[in-house]
């Protein structure tokens, strides 16, 4: 199920920006802010990594939007084909924005502590996967500075190996170290207990409920709420939008207004 209707995509993109703005800074929480007061370079870069990852995802989204639109000029160009390509680009951009927002706002490791026990393994894998983007951005910043201080200028394509190789190679080595560490510490022995799982508070339930409701609204859109998920570009007509679905998209901004979740049990 996907949509190319700009009346749904644009509100979603706006919601992403709103939630990021409302929560991007707050999600660090008081603990991390206190941390920021004593760690120095590391913390500075850690915070930059998370904020930076949102920017990178949005940037990739815009690149996708433009690239997808430009690609159409390599084929037959009609008003309909240009609009269709632009809308597909918009869909891709919105997806990347959603992903970037999740990355910058949600702490995947806290979600891990909220996840039911049977979902622990996939949740841990997801949390580790989500932490790759911000860590890579931090690593890239560190490598760029290190190479500059050795006299190698990291700008332009010719200098790309000096930036990319240390980032990727160190990333691979760290992945191996992590796998070794997990195995050395008994990961996958089958028996597992849980240390201080987080309780599902009102905000967590409300967020989950809103997400499920919005998903159901879009799934059911083809039937009850009137269509319009796919926009007709041949013939090119002004798309119709269901106010219910626009509302469903906008409702996803509500979690951005909720108070931060409770701490440990």
């Amino acid at each position: 199920m996907s949509t190319t209707n700009p009346f749904y995509l644009l509100p979603l993109a706006a919601v992403c920006y709103f939630v990021h703005a409302a929560r991007g800074a707050a999600s660090a929480g008081p603990q991390d802010k206190r941390g920021a007061a004593s760690a120095g370079p590391q913390n500075e870069r850690g915070a930059a990594g998370r904020a930076g990852s949102f920017k990178v995802f949005v940037l990739f989204g815009l690149v996708a939007l433009v690239t997808r639109t430009v690609l159409v000029f390599f084929g037959p160009v009609t008003p309909g084909s240009v609009v269709a390509a632009a809308l597909e680009g918009l869909r891709l951009a919105t997806m990347l924005a959603v992903f970037g927002t999740f990355n910058s706002v949600a702490d995947p490791f806290r979600l891990l502590k909220l996840s039911p026990r049977r979902f622990h393994e996939p949740a841990l894998a997801a949390a580790l996967a989500l932490s790759i983007a911000p860590r890579t951005i931090v690593a890239a910043g560190r490598v760029r500075e290190a190479q500059r201080l050795r006299g190698i200028d990291i700008s332009g394509w010719r200098a790309l190996p000096a930036l990319a190789v240390p980032v990727l190679a160190t990333g691979m080595e760290e992945a191996v170290t992590l796998a070794e560490s997990m195995d050395s510490r008994g990961h996958g022995r089958g028996r597992r207990s849980r240390y201080r799982p987080e309780r599902w508070g009102a905000a967590a339930w409300a967020t989950a409920a809103i997400g499920v409701a919005a998903a159901f609204a879009f799934v059911g859109a083809d039937g009850a709420l009137g269509g319009g998920l796919e926009v007709s570009t041949y013939p090119l007509v002004w798309p119709a939008a269901s106010p219910w679905l626009v509302g469903a998209a906008l409702s996803l901004a509500v979690p951005g207004l909720l108070p931060a979740g409770p701490n440990h049990v």
């Binding site: 560190r142 290190a146 190479q147 050795r150 190789v165 240390p166």
Partner: peptide, 16 residues
């Protein structure tokens, strides 16, 4: 890089 060069704590940042 030209007036001042710095070798960082983490040598892996340089090796390519």
């Amino acid at each position: 890089g030209s007036d001042v060069a710095l070798c960082p704590q983490d040598p892996d940042s340089l090796l390519f």
